[in-house]
Structures are given as C-alpha cells and as structure tokens.
Nucleic acid binder design. Structure first.
Lengths: 154, 154
DNA sequence: CCCAGGTGGTTGATACGTCACCCATGCCCC
DNA sequence: GGGGCATGGGTGACGTATCAACCACCTGGG
C-alpha cells in the first residue's frame, strides 16, 4: 500500500499503516507466545476463557458464536477440533432438538487457567507498558466510536 | 477474553479489547469490500500496489517478501496463486540462477488501478472520517513506538 | 394439522498462512 | 578448487477462515 492514484496525507498514512502494522505484529507475537507456552491458539483461548466464565462451563454453540462474533460455521469447525483435543465436549440439548452445548472439560479449564496469567503479562509487557494512560484513553474512545460507526452502517 | 486470574483494569481492558475489535472489524470490512468490488484479497492488493510502483513492474521475490514482511514460503504460495489468475508472472533471473522475478501483468495493473481509489475511499469513510487529527497523531505515535519496542525485543 | 419460513448445526470446497523440509545455486575460506 | 554453509526458492501437510449448500428441528399462521 503505497501511493497510487489519490492517496492519503502523510499523517493519515503514518497513522493508518502504523495501526495495521501494530496489530499484525502484536497479534502475531501474542499468538505465538500463547501457542508456545500453552499450546493454545488465540481462538482456542477466546473460547475457553468464555466457557470458563459461564455457569456450569457450558453454553449453546450459537450463543458462544454470537458472543465471540464468529460465524456459526467457524464455531462448528473449531469446536470439532477442540473436542478432538479434549478441551471441550459437545452435549446434546434436550430443550431444543437441534441445539448443542459446548462444555469445557477439566483439561480445558486447566489449560486456560495456566494460559491466562501468561497472556495478561504478555499484553502488559508488549503493549500496555509502552502507552501512557492518556493515550490509552484516546485509544479506547477512538476504538469504541469507530466500531459503533461500523456497526450502525452494516 | 474476560476476567480470569489477575486481569486488566477497566480502562486497560476497554482500550485493549476495543483496539482488537476495531482491527478485526475494519480489516474484515475492507477486505470484503476489496474482494467484492475488485476480486482481490488484501494480500493480492498489497503485492500489486508494490509491483505497480516499482521500475518495470518487477521485483525479486525475496525483496518483495522483505518489503511486505512476509515469509518467503507465503510469498511463494501466494505468487503461485496470483500467477494462476494472471495477475503476475514469474520470470527467471539471469544474474542469480536461484532467483525469480515477480512481474505485474497488464491485467494486474488494471486490477490494482481500479481497486486503489475504492480502497482509499473506504479507509476514509470507514475510519479516517471518524477520527480527529489529534487522535490520529496520537495513534500514529503510539503505533510507531510500540512497533519499535516489539522490533527491538525480537 | 400442515406446511412455510426461520434457526441451529454440519459439511465440503476453496483460499490462505505456517512449518518443516527439500533442492539448487552462490560464496567464502582453507 | 573443493567442501561447507548461506541464500533463494519450492513443496506438502496441517490448521484455520469463509462460503454455499444442506439437513433437522422448531414455530406460527391458516
């Protein structure tokens, strides 16, 4: 993404490209750490954190998908893989014959409990430690505003 | 990613989660627009923009990979797919028997020239238009600083 | 009661990124 | 000048995201 036809001002470009790069690097780094230390992908981690935090450690698959803002297909594929690794199990839903619960296993709980503090520490040391509180607030405001705009236009 | 063990302050969490969500949404949205309007993935677009901007529209594969910060394997796979679609062609390198040039085709040039203004307009309307210049500057500074930190620690 | 449309979930195809290897060529130093 | 190592590149396997199609079940209106 360089200049081609009408492009952005220097400041716009700097901010936009910086933002993209930041997320790429930070995301990649955090994902690799999580994988190396806990053998979990970022997606695994997100699923397990939610399940660990919900009564009985189980939730309807579609509900989980909505919370994480995933497509149902992605959730289905992913749950299948996680079940294969013993992190969760599927459970039939008696109230709704179509439904399926996803339930975190003991192994899943152990994995997420081991991973969470490491992950938090990584977010801190790689990101939060290098940002001032004022900057952090600005970042939060901008993010919320733009996400809201994106949502209302969709 | 909710609370589990020691977690983040409310402000930290808001900023961090907002930042992640923002990138996910914005990235997804821009990618889908590019795909729908121009039949190019974000990766295709990045490759073509660079090739269109370089003398003779050709560059060594490894050089391209370094510019985009991709792994050589990813570049190899991707160039193969793009070549299959006629957006680029591979060319042998006479100075270095191992080397390969990637050359943009006329079709590739046409595609990127059609896509670029639409993409810029989308970045503006979905993101830049909702951020003040001061916020943009903060964003640029934070991004550069954190990326620099990440680079020096790797 | 039946059926039309909606919802929950699965599956298979395709595209993509990463990893671990492999091969060939270039380069350098003894 | 030959052996070892680095470099440029390709390949196949695997995990993963998306899309489209599909099936099963539920639900509401006639």
């Amino acid at each position: 993404m360089a200049e081609s036809a009408d492009w952005l001002t220097a400041e716009e470009q700097r901010a936009w490209r910086g933002f993209v790069r930041l997320h790429e690097r930070l995301g990649g780094r955090l994902a690799r750490l999580l994988q190396a230390e806990s053998d979990l992908s970022a997606a695994d981690f997100a699923v397990l954190v939610h399940l660990a935090d919900v009564p009985e450690g189980r939730q309807r698959q579609q509900g989980l998908a909505r919370t994480l803002e995933w497509e149902k297909s992605r959730m289905s594929h992913h749950v299948a893989r996680m079940a294969g690794r013993g992190l969760v199990v599927r459970q039939e839903c008696s109230e709704d014959g179509r439904g399926a619960f996803v339930v975190i296993t003991e192994a899943g709980r152990a994995a997420v409990e081991a991973a969470a503090p490491l992950h938090v520490a990584a977010v801190r040391s790689l990101f939060l430690d290098h940002v001032t509180p004022a900057e952090l607030r600005t970042l939060g405001e901008v993010s919320e505003r733009v996400v809201a705009k994106l949502d209302e236009e969709s």
